[in-house]
Amino acid sequence: MSKNANRIKGSKSDYVLDAIVLTITAFVIIVTLYPLIYVVSMSISDPLSASRGEVILFPKGFSILSYKKAMADDAIWQGYANTVWYTVVGTISSLAATMLGAYPLSRKSFVGRKFFNTLLLVQMFFGGGMIPTYIVVVKVLGLYNSRWAMILPALTSAFNIFIARNFILSLPEELLDCAKIDGASEFRIFTNIIIPLSKSVMSVLTIYLAIGYWNSYFPSVLYHGDSSLHPLGMYVRKMVIQNSILNMGDDAMGGMISAESLLSSLQLKYTVIVIAVLPLLLIYPFFSKYMKKGLMVGSIKG
């Protein structure tokens, strides 16, 4: 009798929960989507309407002129290629470095644990800044105009290592002790036990790292004199900050800026964003799925 009562009670409040959840979700989706739709609409509207602020939600007029203009610029394609390289190589390298750092830290008996922890902690707060880092990267390591200048300076972070470490610590210790007793080396344990079981945290890290590398552009500003190495982010940024407050220059005074270029630069801001984000948009759902799959497998294994 009580079971039945519980079930009815349960299903009622379950539906209430559903209603609340769906309402919140709807709100979140609308609030999130509106500005995004605005961005897309601005990019495909008639340039004049776009610059006049006539676009509220849906495009006014239709013009793919700004896309044509953007794609005609070689810099975009080169930027795409570079960004893909940096993202793929960077994510793999960072993931490796992070896990390699996280595992030893998770071993409670590791003699270097405290040392390592302190090292990580102190550097989280104190850094030399741009100039000394530049000297190290360029003078000491000779990485000027090298692709690795985009990856190595940000190879891993205490943040990520701590997250990964905590995750590994949550894995059952008996598993590792058994492996040890069986005579497995630390290398073995790392590759055959830890990594397979860490799919969930590695997925999260992958997503954060990939997004980070995809958007990164500032190291290129400093270390790449050769513009063929510039990532997409540089191009986006250049388009976006034109004429905005952060952009200071008094070469506005001499010479005349044509109306066309003014109009297109107003619209280009939005177009480049769409171009830069689109690939990520298409890839993310796959990753998300993989992450969930990996997690289920991981937890079934126990």
Partner: peptide, 15 residues
Amino acid sequence: SAVGYTEVVSTRLSA
């Protein structure tokens, strides 16, 4: 790039 040129110059001159 004009983006961050100030930082580039400061950094390179300093380094």
